[in-house]
Write a protein that binds this DNA or RNA. Structure first.
Length: 217
DNA sequence: GCGACAG
DNA sequence: ATCTTGTCGC
């Protein structure tokens, strides 16, 4: 599979999108809604869940899901091929546009500077941040008291520890910068993970129950 | 050639 | 990610 023209194509596409990904400050004080995104699978199909989380109410205020075919196997570095189409479809089912997307996976902490989180943010034209459970690319090291994810001489993310000490690798997605990510983490604390937990739960439940979209009231 | 490799 | 219950250990 490594010499496949399909894989070659998606790598070239990723290299084309990479320079379009924007690093810029985000006005964190005006981020009111976060959107947690995750995908669950069953064989050749996947279900993406998009959970809208209110920062002030600290709860889920809306959710949507999208079920669809997944045609390619997982290839490290090309997670976006499997998950971005489903996530974007789920986001489109929300009645509101989220202020910030939280995505399972990396953003700029990627060998081609274009991880899933960055690509979804770019294509949705919405600020985004990646939250992964393990490293893919870059080096985690202490800088000025902060455990950063560094690629070359650039800080592309930060290591976050939840209350149980588990590490999460948070990296810049799209339309955010390092400072913005630090402020988001500082202000949300463990609630940074809440929308993602809920998205994880929803995608798995929707997969099993066969349900999709929002349940009838 | 060898090892690493998000979900 | 997913296949899968109880079980060994801090």
């Amino acid at each position: 599979m490594s010499g496949s023209h399909i894989i070659d194509f998606f790598i070239r596409l990723q290299l084309t999108l990479s320079p379009l990904i924007k690093v810029s400050p985000l006005d964190v004080s005006r981020v009111e809604t976060l959107c947690g995104l995750d995908v669950s699978y069953s064989g050749e199909e996947g279900v993406a869940a998009a959970v809208l989380w209110s920062r002030v109410e600290r709860r889920v205020v809306e959710s949507a899901a999208f079920r669809g075919a997944v045609l390619t196997p997982y290839v490290p570095g090309l997670l976006y091929v499997r998950e971005a189409p489903l996530m974007l479809a789920a986001i489109r089912r929300l009645s509101r546009v989220p202020d910030l997307l939280l995505i399972d996976g990396h953003g700029l902490a990627h060998p081609r500077r274009a991880g899933l989180a960055s690509i979804v943010g770019l294509l949705a034209d919405t600020p985004s941040i990646g939250v992964a459970k393990s490293m893919l690319y870059g080096e985690a090291r202490l800088e000025e008291g902060v455990e950063c994810i560094v690629v070359g001489d650039e800080r592309v993310g930060v290591v976050f520890r939840d209350d149980r000490g588990r590490r999460f690798y948070v990296s810049l997605g799209h339309r955010v910068d390092f400072g913005s990510v630090l402020r988001i983490i500082g202000q949300l604390g463990s609630d940074l993970l809440s929308p993602l937990r809920e998205a994880h739960r929803l995608s798995k439940n929707a997969l099993r129950s066969g349900l999709e979209g929002r349940p009838a009231p």
